[in-house]
Structure formats: C-alpha cells, structure tokens
C-alpha cells in the first residue's frame, strides 16, 4: 500500500477510536443548523439559496478546524513518535500529506453530513444547485486552507493549546484582512498597494464568488496556495526540528 494511504488510515483510525470525532461531528452539525436557522433566519428570508448556511462557515471553521488539526504534529512531538515516524523509510512529505488528507477527509465528511439542508432548500423551492455545489467546494477548500495553517502551527509546538490559539489567530486575520474596519485605518497610513495587498489575503471574496456559482481560476489558485504554502512551511519546520 502507498505509505501516504497508510498514514491516512492510521490518522483516521486515531480519530474514530476516540470519542473526539463523534463529538466534533455532532457539534459541527448542531452549530451549522443553529446558525443557519436561528441567526441566519433561513425561513424568514424566503429565498431559495444556501447563503445563510454558507455565510457562517468562515467563522465556524475558525474554531472547529484548529480543534481538528491542533494535534497533528504536536502530539507526535509530545509522545516522541516523531522520531519513529521520521526514521521509517518514508519521506516527511508523505507523512505531512497523509496526515493532512486524513484530517481534511474528516472535515469533508462533516461538511457532507449537512446534506439535509440541501434537501430542505430543494424541497421548499428551486435553488441554483450549481451554485450550491460550488459553495460546498469553496467551503471544503477553505476548511483545507485553515487545516494546512493548523498543521503548520501544530508542528511549531508540542502543546496542542498553543497550536490551537496560534492557528485561530492566523485564520482570523485571513478572515478579517479584507474587511473595511481593518482596511480603512490602514489606508490612512499606507499607500494603496499595501492596503490592497493585505486585503488580497482575505478568504472572503474568494469564498463569496464560489458561493455565487462562479468558478474563477484566481480563486482556485488562491485556495490551492492557501493549502500548499503552509504545508510546505510544515515540512521546513519539521526539518529544522531534526537538526
């Protein structure tokens, strides 16, 4: 079997052998439901789309994704199993990818368990299912981006709590950096290109376009780099741990 798959299988086994996975799934589904129906006012809006469902995802993932990913590497460091893993005949890349795929797969599973909302909106009206599909893709990519950041912060420390807090802070800044209350004060002191550069890091516009059913290569490239760069940083951190 491919070593990446072996790593993935072990990680998933680790999730489902403990109650953590089930607790997470229940909390995720309860929270998406609560936000969509009570705060997002899904019924009162009387619109056949999932905008009140997707609009909360950047905020929900802000806490839930670091909770899933915080143990990825910090636990290996705490237990000392990092030494075991890195002296096996596999490259660090295979371990990083295997672990990432396992956690991302788990997040995608959680996301796909929200299918009743899709079923509900189709029962009540006739929404644009293409836009809903791209919305789901965007949500999964965003979760992957947050997760890659958590993988990086988790390699930085053997303490899961520190890893959690660091990744929440980084992800929060990715959510907020395009928001006017953040960009306006910046615009007062810095030239326009810096402000625009900072704002370009924001996940929001990219996720918004995918929610509207627009698949733009720029958005895809953004999300792929959001996943790829922190994973690369993870490999650099792990290499530096060994010397």
């Amino acid at each position: 079997m491919n070593p990446i798959l072996t790593i993935t299988k072990r990680e998933l086994g680790g999730f489902f052998n403990s109650p953590v996975a089930y607790v997470f799934l229940v909390i995720f589904l309860l929270m998406t439901g609560a936000f969509t129906f009570f705060i997002g006012q899904f019924f009162d809006r009387a619109q056949a789309n999932l905008q009140p469902f997707f609009m909360w995802h950047p905020w929900l993932y802000l806490f839930l994704v670091p909770a899933v990913g915080m143990r990825l590497w910090s636990e290996e460091r705490r237990l000392g199993t990092l030494e075991l893993l890195l002296t096996m005949p596999i490259s660090p890349w295979q371990s990083i990818t295997g672990k990432f795929i396992a956690s991302w797969g788990f997040l995608i599973l959680a996301l796909s368990l929200t299918f009743p909302i899709w079923w509900t909106v189709n029962d009540l009206g006739s929404p644009d299912n293409g836009a809903i599909f791209t919305g789901y893709i965007g949500s999964a990519l965003m979760a992957g981006g947050y997760l890659a950041i958590t993988s990086m912060t988790s390699a930085l420390t053997r303490n899961q709590v520190i890893s959690f807090i660091l990744s929440v802070v980084i992800c929060l800044s990715l959510v907020l950096c395009g928001w006017p209350p953040v960009t306006d004060p910046l615009a007062a002191y810095f030239p326009n290109w810096i402000v625009e550069g900072v704002a370009a890091f924001s996940v929001m516009p990219h996720f918004d376009r995918l929610q509207q059913g627009v698949i733009d290569s720029r958005d895809l490239i953004y999300f792929i780099s959001l996943i790829g760069f922190p994973l690369f940083a993870t490999s650099v951190i792990i290499r530096s741990l060994r010397s």
């Binding site: 079997m1 070593p3 072996t6 790593i7 299988k9 072990r10 086994g13 680790g14 052998n17 403990s18 237990l79 000392g80 199993t81 030494e83 075991l84 096996m88 005949p89 596999i90």
Partner: peptide, 20 residues
C-alpha cells in the same frame, strides 16, 4: 515511543505497512 491510541496489533500492523 508508541502511538498510544492504537492496540499492540494495530500498531505493529501500521509499522509493517509503512515498511511496505
């Protein structure tokens, strides 16, 4: 060091699989 969330058999199986 060992993965504490696995059984002895599961852990040895993992190590065998990683080694192909």
């Amino acid at each position: 060091p060992l993965y504490t969330d696995m059984t002895v058999e599961g852990f040895l199986g993992f190590c065998a699989e990683v080694r192909g």
